[in-house]
């Protein structure tokens, strides 16, 4: 039994839309062990993105606590949360969200630059990350010169730049063809095996689901084990 890396305790999130309260998460108790590939499924609007954002320190819960590596991240201030996002977690989005005016290499360099790594060092590391995702020969291409699958692989490389212990992905294959989706999951599995990195992936994609070590389903803001 490996150690818990993420543990949420009675996590609730209520959005306010004008005078209406919109509940997005309802007493979520989720436990993720280190080294797992967790898939989170659920219908649209069930609260998957909300949960991922809270785990990733992008959003704060209305109630409850969330421990990552033993630290309650709901107690962190804005600056420490940014630091947490920079060092502990990597984000992968459905629409890749690369910076359009930067090359693939430069996009991967951003988190390293934010860490204050010297130019040579971050260049070298970014290149080796691109090699991991099989894109070293596309290093100088801008996002609009890359296919969707390639952009998503650049996004993986960017998410991994600071060697985070958790990688969060929100419908990462939602916009990819099945070949690219399989390539994506192969990389995820390799990384998981090699670096013992934990992945939490929100998805509808059966290709993704079958590679996960654990599946949860969210319905109306409640987590159910699959």
């Amino acid at each position: 039994m490996s150690k818990l890396i993420v543990r949420t305790i009675d996590l609730s999130k209520v959005y306010r839309r004008g005078k209406v309260n919109v509940p997005a998460l309802n007493n979520v108790n989720l436990q993720v062990s280190s080294g797992e590939i967790v898939g989170i499924m659920g219908p649209s609007g069930s609260g998957k993105t909300t949960l991922l954002n809270i785990i990733g320190g992008l959003d704060k819960p209305t109630q409850g606590k969330i421990f990552v590596d033993g630290v309650d991240i709901t107690s962190l201030n804005e600056k420490d949360l940014a630091d947490y996002r920079l060092k502990k977690v990597g984000f992968i989005f459905q629409f890749y969200n690369l910076i359009p005016i930067l090359t693939a290499l430069e996009n991967v360099e951003i988190p390293l630059a934010l860490m204050g790594a010297p130019k040579d060092e971050r260049r070298e590391r970014a290149l080796s990350l691109l090699r991991v995702v099989g894109l070293e020969n596309r290093a100088d291409h801008k996002p609009d010169e890359l296919s969707g699958g390639e952009q998503q692989r650049v996004a993986i490389a960017r998410a991994l730049a600071n060697n985070p212990s958790i990688v969060l992905a929100d419908e990462p294959t939602g916009d990819l063809d099945s070949k690219s989706a399989m390539a994506f999951m192969k990389i995820v599995r390799d990384l998981n095996r090699r670096n013992n990195q934990t992945f939490i992936i929100v998805t509808h994609d059966p290709l993704v689901v079958e590679q996960c070590t654990k599946i949860y389903t969210i319905r109306d803001g409640r987590v159910e084990s699959a």
Binding site: L58, A82, R85, I99
Partner: peptide, 16 residues
């Protein structure tokens, strides 16, 4: 705006 969100998501601080 979206780019700002992405940068913050990957760890950019306010002063960055």
């Amino acid at each position: 705006t979206r780019e700002i969100g992405v940068l913050k998501a990957i760890g950019a601080k306010n002063h960055d």
